[in-house]
Amino acid sequence: MTAEEQFFALYKPEAGRLYRIAWAILGNEADAGDALQEATIRAYRAFDQLKGGAAAFPAWMRRILVNTCTQILRKRMRVIPVGRPEDFADDQVAPDMALAVDSDAWDAVRELDERYRAVVVLRFLNDLQLEDIATALDIPLGTVKSRLHTALKQLKERLQTGHTTRRGAM
């Protein structure tokens, strides 16, 4: 089996998940495809450096993809000249709302402002620590905390009131 065949034997079962991870971080399918392509080439070129064999591949591939996506996000965020999204937070949230998240989670998260969405996805989908999110996005730790706090409030409100606009998920 050639290196290419070995790579794709491990890669193909993960491709759908990887695609959605990129989509969740970057917010749209076109950018997700570009990021996945870049990450896949990086991974293939570094394939001989994979430690731990087939079992380690999914986590290794995800790390490469998340790094690729956050690099893209950093460049993108540098060119968005807007005020702090925290300034637009809606604090009118009831504390005892129903937690109707599950299959609706992505529909609610995708509606968030990009800065909130990225923090939420990195924290709750990719399980990054807050310090790691701050490093990945090149923002202060305090900003990560306040964005996460605001994003969760918005998500709870949307999931409670059913304002989430459902879009067809693949």
């Binding site: 990887l18 695609y19 969740a24 709750f124 969760l152 998920a169």
Partner: peptide, 25 residues
């Protein structure tokens, strides 16, 4: 809420399918 959000997002990711044209690319 954080726990449910994490489960919901991971469930959504697990259902993902890479578009065939992207896979070919």
């Amino acid at each position: 809420f954080g726990h449910n959000l994490s489960s919901g997002l991971k469930h959504w990711v697990d259902q993902g399918v890479c578009p065939p044209e992207l896979m070919a690319q």
